[in-house]
Design a protein around this nucleic acid. Structure first.
Lengths: 239, 239
DNA sequence: CGAATCGTTGAGGTCGCTCAATCATAGTGG
DNA sequence: CCACTATGATTGAGCGACCTCAACGATTCG
């Protein structure tokens, strides 16, 4: 059976048997991680990267005053800590939101794959670039959009990302995020998130309830969010 | 004379004669760009990357409602559009804040340099990683810090970045940003930025006036900003 | 049953925005 | 040399989005 990562990469770069085999080798030793575990701690020495196979995780930074900013939610098929393969330390932390299945990817192994299979290397660099583009979009979202639009944007984006790994359809998707985590991602308080979610529901756009996001009117929701999916589904450059 | 990029990379990775020569070749054909020019337009097809040699530039995204979010200020020694070498299009725009001197770096040339001089490739990837870490820090800044702290943080960060290329000292630095641009970077209005700058001045921390940032009390300013420079001055991983 | 987690709602306060005006400086054309 | 304009900084008044504090309900779990 194809992994989420293979499914995602395959949507943008046609992968041959050799690439699929190399990917399968990278994901060969899955490990269980219970919900709540911190996988990588900010400024931790070492260069560990993971491929997330099942479950949801958080990338976040903590502030001296106790505040937390969620940089991104990670879903199956995503990397975690790819950057720390290059830098000595990771600049943010990762924690398991649900029980996870991950594979740890040794840095040297990944670099070796790049050299042997340039097409795979390109695909993975594309994934890394896409991750950065998502952070930029998140920055725009927090910096310049109202709480309502901002929330809508995040919900739309998660849906699109999950579609790539067949975990969402046109109805909605399962989403184990709670309102506190959502607030820390959106730069809001949980209380205000609650009110915004209610507003989205009462506007007939989307409901967020019991671990499930259900679209009521996806076109209007996307219009409100002003979401351009370009940075998510753009084809990679021909190698 | 050594370029800003060479100076910056040299602080973190010892570069040999071969690497310095390759860098000099990449920067060989400088081009003048007048202030106000848009170098790369969002979603533009093509993969152009530039090395900024002199002057300041903006990386930003425009919103449908006319708003603008400044992702980052680019200073001498920085790349612009490195990501677009991988993706078909760039996901944000670049504009010249002042008159610039830039070198356009052909994608194939850069990739060739990587293969011939892995140490240089590592150094440049380190620079790209650092850029991403700065975006993440910016996200935290906007999402979870007050206007006062946020502004202090940006001013401190710019100073540290400029120090790497000998364009700042312990007194302060020249800074051609106006209050509108600062506002678009901080997710505030220019009017409020004005008040925050006054507050910083009246607190005896820093002045921002006539294109010059002057520290009044750098230690207190850094304490207020809660600035961890780790992501800026961290050594790169040994190749 | 008690404790913990998460969601929900209300009342009131404040940070940062909107709208509007004034001032300083530099450039531009007559 | 002098309007005239454009840009950027500055200040005031009033408002609203979002926060803080506080409480309560629903569900789950040991």
């Amino acid at each position: 059976m194809e992994s989420s990562l293979a499914r995602k990469l395959g949507r943008f770069a046609p992968l041959g048997a050799a690439e699929l085999a190399a990917l399968a080798a990278l994901e060969a030793k899955p490990r269980q991680v219970p919900a709540g575990t911190e996988l990588v701690h900010e400024r931790q020495i070492g260069h560990r990267a993971f491929i997330l196979q099942q479950g949801w995780a958080l990338a976040y930074k903590l502030l001296p005053d106790g505040g937390r900013q969620v940089i991104d939610f990670r879903v199956p098929g995503d990397f975690m800590g790819l950057r720390s393969v290059l830098l000595r330390t990771s600049d943010h932390s990762f924690a398991a939101l649900t029980d996870l299945v991950v594979s740890e990817v040794p840095a040297d192994r990944m670099i070796a794959s790049f050299n042997e299979l340039p097409r795979l290397g390109t695909a993975i660099l594309w994934a890394a670039s896409r991750d950065e583009a998502m952070v930029v979009e998140h920055l725009v979202n927090i910096g310049r959009r109202s709480a309502l639009v901002r929330t809508a944007h995040l919900l739309v984006e998660l849906g699109l990302r999950l579609q790539l790994v067949d975990m969402a359809d046109t109805e909605g998707y399962d989403c184990p995020i709670n309102q506190y985590q959502l607030a820390d991602a959106l730069g809001l308080t949980a209380i205000h998130v609650n009110r915004v979610l209610r507003q989205l529901r009462e506007l007939g756009l989307v409901t967020f309830r019991d671990g499930r996001v259900t679209y009521q009117d996806l076109p209007r929701l996307r219009r409100l969010a002003g979401h351009h999916s370009g940075y998510l589904d753009q084809a990679i450059r021909a190698p």
